[in-house]
Amino acid sequence: MTTEKRLISLSVNGELQAKIVEPRMSLADFLRIELELTGTHVGCESGVCGACTVNINGQTARACTILAVQVEGDEVTTIEGASESGEFRDLQDAFHARNALQCGFCTPGMLMMSAELLTQNSKPCRQEIREYLSGNYCRCTGYEAIVDAVETVAQTRNARVGEQDD
């Protein structure tokens, strides 16, 4: 069976992209193969592990459960873009200081989810952090360091807000 390839255009990390893709190509493969943004990882291709989590139009999404043709006109942010813009540099620094990653395969997805959590809940308790990130598997750390890192960033951001209020 042959299928018609389609031209899609979208913004990825603030850059406009236009590419011709097969409809069956997932957004994860599109980012990795067509745009060479290999920071988005593919762990299960079934939306379960969270390694491919990216941000689409301001919300996290699993790039393996979305077809590239679906994101026509959307704004996609990957770990590369978020790193370059520095939008969650404090999370990255806290993960680094706390060793909240080992092999690093799940890390881009963890950061994407952590960043979204902190925009929705500036003072999450440890249990809320665990619940928000529970759909992202990590096989190395045992998770505690990740919870610590996110908690630290929440506290630091709140302290900063507190200082500004004073």
Partner: peptide, 9 residues
């Protein structure tokens, strides 16, 4: 239901 990332979609 699922992860927040799933619930977004």
């Amino acid at each position: 239901i699922g992860s927040p990332a799933i619930r977004n979609r």
